[in-house]
Nucleic acid binder design. Structure first.
Lengths: 129, 129
DNA sequence: AAAAAATAATTACATTTGTAATCAAATATA
DNA sequence: TATATTTGATTACAAATGTAATTATTTTTT
């Protein structure tokens, strides 16, 4: 089968990626963005599963052997890349340009954002020559 | 709970959306893009579930009461909109611009695609004034 | 009319996911 | 030292998902 980070698990990864160093489970529970009001037990289960799935590492605390210090084993970049590919593949048959056009057409963008994206496209244009 | 079109079910919806008129289950089985080699039974189960979930309608054939003519009950547009929102929300904390920047930066685009997207952004710029 | 074929409905079943409680072991506290 | 607390490990359980077989019913064919 194809091991994957589930949507709920993603929030835990987010917390780990946002941290500069390893975090204990208590710290993770405290920091996880939890608008769905999950119980601390639930967050810990998600963390456990991420360890089992191989997306998270831990080191046992030197003084208190009960306490683990967790850190991500995979980079946010590679994970987002994968999600991006899956998304475009399923919903846009792999046509990135169509997807981009749709998002640009459907959403409000600030002037600043428009300039930034235009600049990016200009860079692409140069690069394509 | 929150009724949703699953990834596998999405392929069936795709087939229905691509068709100009209603399709029988046999036609759907024949047309579904099936790179995962699902059995016809599986496709039919997915179709059934879409009916139960309320995403697909059917009309019984006038001559053969066993044959149903299926059609989508929801538009591709609204469904993609929903998936788009969920995607940006989960993986980009709702920041569409960041998502767009990432996709533009990470992927190859043809000159034509670049021009098209630039034109879209220009239209946005006008509109923002 | 009986048999064969087709088709939707029902049932099956393992895996994943969301959500959490209980258990066991280690540490801190009384 | 006995007890309370903390924390990871294990177990629980319903719903969703992927995948498919079996059943029942209706036509078609012989």
């Amino acid at each position: 089968m194809h091991i994957n980070i589930s949507d709920s698990e993603w929030c835990v990864m987010q917390t780990l990626w946002e941290s500069t160093g390893p975090l204990t489970s208590a710290e993770i529970v405290a920091r996880v963005k939890n608008e769905k009001n999950r119980s601390p037990r639930t967050i810990k289960t998600l963390l456990q599963r991420l360890v089992v799935k191989g997306f998270v590492n831990y080191k046992v605390d030197e003084h208190d052997s009960r306490i683990y210090h967790y850190s991500p084993k995979v980079s946010e970049n590679e994970c987002i890349d994968k999600e991006n590919r899956d998304f475009v593949s399923l919903y846009y048959k792999g046509d990135i340009s169509e997807m981009l056009a749709r998002f640009i057409g459907d959403n409000d963008l600030t002037g600043e954002q428009i300039e930034e994206l235009t600049a990016l496209l200009n860079a692409k244009r140069e690069e394509a020559l």
